[in-house]
Amino acid sequence: MKRGELRKLSDSARRKVSRNFGFRQSGYINWIVKDGYFFCLQHLGFASVYLEAKPMYADDLWWDIFNLSENKKCPTSLRGIGAFSIHAAQLKEYAFLNECAEENNEEELSKKWQNIFCLAVQDIENFLRNHPNADTFIPNKKLQL
């Protein structure tokens, strides 16, 4: 299967699976807002998917400082893909797939996405237990899930 075909098939499977978990999709990200945090799954390549988190206020404050308050009216996905958005703290990396593997079909891709979203939801819940107050969250190198 060609790389472009595999990307389309994976994106389609990801969109279907993500909806079951309450995530939205925009390009290479899936995102959800929970308890004052923006959680984002980034899928730039085929090998890995990254779970990231940041408080919702971070981008609002950033945009106010740089006189970009109109960004607050843009779609929420801008917080994950926007050029003028605060970088989120990386919480977890999930292995995704070997793009040369022969089992890369729609059913297998859906299973892989199902597994990743199950893990991500669990990791988000663990994160929220350890960091219940988004207003006081400050990311550091030893972030606990």
Rank of each mutant, 00 (worst) to 15 (best):
R7C: 05
L41A: 01
E5F: 08
S26H: 12
F46A: 02
I116C: 10
Q144C: 04
A47V: 06
E107N: 15
Q114R: 13
N105W: 03
P75S: 15
D59Q: 00
G36S: 11
N20K: 15
A88L: 03
L68H: 06
R14P: 02
E107G: 12
S110Y: 09
N126Q: 14
I32W: 04
A134N: 06
L78R: 13
M56H: 01
D35F: 07
N67H: 14
K34V: 08
W63S: 07
V121D: 14
Y50W: 14
P55M: 04
S69K: 12
L128D: 01
F66P: 03
V33L: 12
H43G: 15
L61T: 08
E106Q: 09
Q122A: 10
L97F: 10
A58V: 00
E107W: 06
D35G: 05
M1R: 11
L68C: 07
S12K: 15
Q144V: 12
S26T: 08
K141M: 13
K34L: 14
A58K: 01
K92T: 09
G22W: 01
A89V: 07
Y94I: 00
T136A: 06
L61R: 13
N104Y: 00
L41Y: 10
N115S: 15
N98A: 02
L119E: 07
D59F: 00
K2I: 00
N115T: 08
N20E: 08
K16S: 14
S18Y: 04
F39N: 01
F23S: 08
C100F: 15
F84K: 08
L128F: 06
L41S: 08
F46G: 01
K73W: 05
F39V: 03
T136H: 12
N105C: 09
A47F: 10
G36T: 07
R19P: 00
N133E: 14
L143G: 02
F66R: 08
Q122P: 00
N30L: 02
V121H: 08
N133G: 03
A120C: 08
E125H: 04
G45T: 12
K92S: 11
D35H: 14
G22N: 05
Q144S: 13
H87R: 15
S10P: 03
G27S: 06
L91Q: 02
C118V: 12
K112A: 04
W113D: 04
L145C: 02
Y37G: 00
L97G: 05
H87C: 12
I86Q: 12
C118D: 13
Q144L: 11
D11C: 09
S18W: 06
D64K: 10
V33P: 09
V33F: 11
T136F: 09
P132A: 06
N115F: 15
